[in-house]
Design a protein around this nucleic acid. Structure first.
Lengths: 155, 155
DNA sequence: CTGTGTGCAAACATTTTGCAAGCAG
DNA sequence: CTGCTTGCAAAATGTTTGCACACAG
């Protein structure tokens, strides 16, 4: 699992540039704008959200949604961002510069709360091992109703 | 969580008919064919897979993929099937007639193994409660490499 | 009979790809 | 200069919807 501690923007940028160099890829203004926008907005993004935000913050770059998709895929392959799946409605991405964690999602308002639990992670390792699997990753998403929405429903 | 014990096909069918009646919906040959196919093939299906299988088993019904989607949605709304998300590549469905369980997925060959773990379920309840959530559901998917694929890779 | 269900084609939503021009190294 | 990168438009995927006819209740 990814146990990287939170990175400063400069460290993150350096990591990104190293990845680019290693793959003989180029450091472009669009790629930087996308990385910076992800860094400055710690929410969970759909590619569409991110695209709109980048366009708004850096209108002069005229970044296309294609580039946002390509950059997110690049970042995900290199573990700088991670994604959550939501059935047909595509994915949400978040910057992977914090320690591993999972999510609780409110089914009413869509709010996402992060948590981590070492005990569950241990049990997962054990379960995989017993079944002959070498664990590389996991998704755990809890769905429920948050406090606020529970109160609203009772009125 | 869904703790229904495994149902026989007749029980399943009766449950389905009750749901239909309750919603003033009709029991049709296509809906039965889809349910029966799900019952007889305990694998995890994409809507496309299921569509092809139903077409093959009941060619005279000439079932359309539209109907497969509509029926899967109907069954899912009524908790007779559950679905796993796979990013952009759509969902996989399985009949919900067995006790709750989660999945380990091989990243190389796509094999899916089921497991259940009461201890993790308990921890999940606790985590949600501590954060003010009323838990309704969860997704836990472990990704790894199965024994067979580990062996193949070392050759 | 009434109104729901069906298949088909078209529409949709999201993501990927082909291409010609632009720009990083 | 070379060849990766970009935006655009088009294609590809996966899923949903509008419609006229079919059929369950």
């Amino acid at each position: 699992m990814n146990n990287t501690e939170s990175l400063s923007y400069d460290e993150l940028l350096e990591t990104f540039r190293t990845i680019l160099r290693k793959n003989r890829l180029k450091f472009t203004a669009q790629r930087e704008a996308i990385l910076k926008t992800l860094y400055e907005h710690p929410e969970h993004f759909t590619p569409e959200n991110l695209y709109l935000l980048v366009k708004q913050k850096y209108p002069e770059l005229n970044t296309g949604i294609t580039t946002v998709y390509r950059t997110l895929n690049l970042l995900e392959e290199n573990k700088l961002v991670t994604s959550l799946s939501f059935g047909t409605q595509g994915k949400k991405f978040e910057l992977g510069n914090k320690p591993h964690h999972d999510h609780i999602i409110c089914e009413v308002c869509g709010k996402i709360v992060e948590f981590e639990d070492a005990q569950i992670e241990e049990l997962q390792q054990k379960i995989a091992k017993m079944r002959g699997f070498k664990l590389t990753n996991h998704i755990m998403q809890l769905y429920g109703i948050c406090r606020k929405c529970q109160e609203t429903q009772n009125h």
